[in-house]
């Protein structure tokens, strides 16, 4: 059995060949999420015949349904349950069904995550449902959907602020709290300076591989916190906010890899009572 990542890679590649835009999305009103013609093939390819349960008690998606900047749409996916050893969200699929590459990200969590929650920023190519599917440790799937009116973000100029090459891959951790308290879930934002080039940009040289962040692995004291397989549906300068559970002094460590096989590492030691960087 292939690893979930390589399996997903295949899914990504297959999805990328879907004829997006074949039927022009033209709804001003929200369509019926169950009848979306875009969703059926994606659902089939990613989940086959597995049942997708109504996610309202397990997972919710928060965002502005009318997003004004389609290249940067903040989205939060929040678990409605606690992560425990016996019952936890193992992974969350984040899907923007009308994006040229609809599978925006696959985020994996563990009981050490404290809570399964993820905030990031997405690009929207057209008005679209965004869907979050949570897979539990027992394999059950739960889905939440939101309709978003935002368009043009996949191809929006991603280099308004061209990043100097030596700064690409620079990372920061930002914390909401000023200090940590052990054994209490702690919210942290991982920021990555990266153009996260969209393969859609029409000036993009098709003979080259667009450079975007494809994987992120975060650990605390050697234990997995959150790992992600992502693509260019994530806005430039990717940002991920999630929880970790510090049980004692340890190293918070982020390993990032992009499509040009460049690896970046960022780490910091977390100690109770020691001030944490913020804005």
């Amino acid at each position: 059995m292939a690893s979930p990542f390589s399996r997903r890679r295949t899914v990504l590649a297959a999805l990328a060949s879907l004829p997006f835009g074949a039927a022009l999305a033209n709804e001003k009103a929200e369509p019926d999420p169950a009848k979306s013609q875009y969703w059926t093939p994606i659902r089939q390819m990613m989940f086959g015949d597995r049942q997708l349960h109504d996610g309202k008690d397990v997972i919710r998606v928060y965002l502005n349904t009318r997003a004004d900047d389609a290249s940067t749409v903040p989205v939060s996916v929040k678990a409605q349950i606690d992560q425990t050893e016996s019952n936890y969200i193992k992974q969350i699929f984040l899907i923007v069904e009308r994006n040229p590459s609809p599978a925006a990200g696959l985020f994996q969590f563990s009981p050490h995550s404290g809570r399964a929650q993820l905030e990031t920023r997405l690009r929207f190519e057209d008005f679209s449902f965004v869907r979050a599917v949570a897979e539990m440790n027992d394999g059950k799937l739960y889905m939440a959907s939101r309709w978003v009116k935002a368009a043009g973000g996949c191809s929006a100029p991603g280099d308004r602020f061209r990043i100097p090459p030596e700064l690409v891959g620079q990372m920061k951790f930002k914390f909401v709290d000023e200090t940590v308290e052990y054994n209490k879930p702690q919210l942290v934002q991982l920021m990555i300076r990266h153009p996260n080039e969209s393969a859609l940009a029409s000036d993009f040289d098709e003979t080259k591989t667009p450079q975007f962040v494809r994987s992120v692995k975060v650990t605390y004291a050697g234990k997995p916190v959150m790992s992600a397989e992502v693509d260019f549906s994530i806005s430039d300068n990717p940002s991920f906010r999630f929880f970790f559970l510090p049980t004692g002094e340890g190293e918070l460590r982020a390993e990032v890899e992009d499509t040009h096989d460049r690896r970046y590492l960022h780490r910091m030691t977390i100690t109770e009572g020691v001030p944490l960087p913020g804005g």
């Binding site: 033209n26 389609a70 057209d126 368009a151 043009g152 191809s155 929006a156 100029p157 940009a201």
Partner: peptide
């Protein structure tokens, strides 16, 4: 040219919409 080429399709879609 570059900026518009990147947004041409969504701009046309939105105009139509």
């Amino acid at each position: 040219r570059r900026a518009l080429n990147q947004r041409a399709r969504p701009y046309l879609n939105a105009l139509q919409r």
